[in-house]
């Protein structure tokens, strides 16, 4: 008997359109994200990739000009009918610029679990901090100064702290919004390493301006242009033999 690899769709997007102030930013998008994969999204500016990402955990809701149509399912549950706070607990997000909260490293990590009522005992908090920092491959660098201010860390460390902070609330999906646009190549490499480590346990959607980064970490890659999904497929195939000419042009740097 042939054992079929289990491929469950973690996120399914159906006919999603997004508008900013009446202007179409994303048009009739249909795409799925498979469990435990890294889906990378590439595309030039204004291609709708960030709008898409921010729709997945409803961070767009705070923008009064924003409107949307269609449906997004997380494990067969429509996220637009979910409680946004609960959704954001399950779908964590990492921003372009590392934004540690203005407190110590330790407090940064226990902040969300405490607020969400996941922990109350000091020993549990210690465990969560250690585990999260280890998963974000930061533990060895900061274990001796957990109580110093997070603002004093380097950019790459701050970004990994932000990853650890998300891991502390045990999400199912992690969204990365150009996580290395403000980092040097070595810090970028470290963030990419932790991403590949993380996909064993989490599903990851990565928006990046760096085409090479997509080819390094992505299992599948989607190419967005002017609010439309042009092509999505296995990263290897997209980079070697794209079906659409526009994809090839973008990847080889002829435009964008």
């Amino acid at each position: 008997m042939v054992k079929i690899m289990e491929k469950i769709d973690k996120i399914k997007v159906e006919n999603l359109s997004c508008f900013y102030g009446g202007k179409l930013a994303l048009e009739a998008l249909n795409i799925n994200v498979v469990k435990n994969e890294i889906l990378t999204i590439i595309g030039p500016a204004n291609s709708g990739k960030t709008s898409f990402l921010r729709t997945l955990n409803r961070m767009n809701d705070f923008d009064a000009n924003y409107a949307r149509k269609g449906a997004v399912y997380l494990d067969d549950e429509n996220i637009f009918y979910m409680n946004p706070e609960k959704l954001r607990k399950r779908v964590g997000m990492l921003f372009a610029m590392p934004i540690p909260l203005p407190m110590s490293i330790y407090e940064n990590i226990v902040y969300a679990p405490k607020r969400l009522g996941l922990v109350s005992k000091k020993s549990d908090m210690d465990d969560i901090v250690k585990e999260a920092l280890q998963e974000a491959s930061l533990w060895n660098e900061v274990k001796d100064r957990l109580n110093s201010s997070a603002m004093k860390m380097s950019g790459g460390q701050q970004q990994r702290l932000c990853i650890a902070r998300i891991l502390a609330i045990k999400p199912e999906v992690i969204l990365f919004d150009e996580p290395s646009s403000g980092l040097d190549p070595i810090s970028t490499a470290k963030v990419e390493e932790s991403m590949i480590e993380l996909k064993k346990k989490y599903t990851i959607v990565l928006v990046t301006n760096n085409v090479k980064q997509a080819s390094r970490v992505g299992d599948r890659t989607a190419f967005f242009l002017m609010g439309k999904l042009i092509e999505v497929g296995k990263t290897g195939e997209i980079f070697v033999s794209p079906k659409e000419k526009q994809t090839g042009d973008y990847i080889t740097g002829r435009f964008g």
């Binding site: 961070m59 934004i99 969400l116 902070r165």
Partner: peptide, 11 residues
Amino acid sequence: SYKEGALALGA
């Protein structure tokens, strides 16, 4: 961005 960071964590 501070607020966004906290909100994205489900606060």
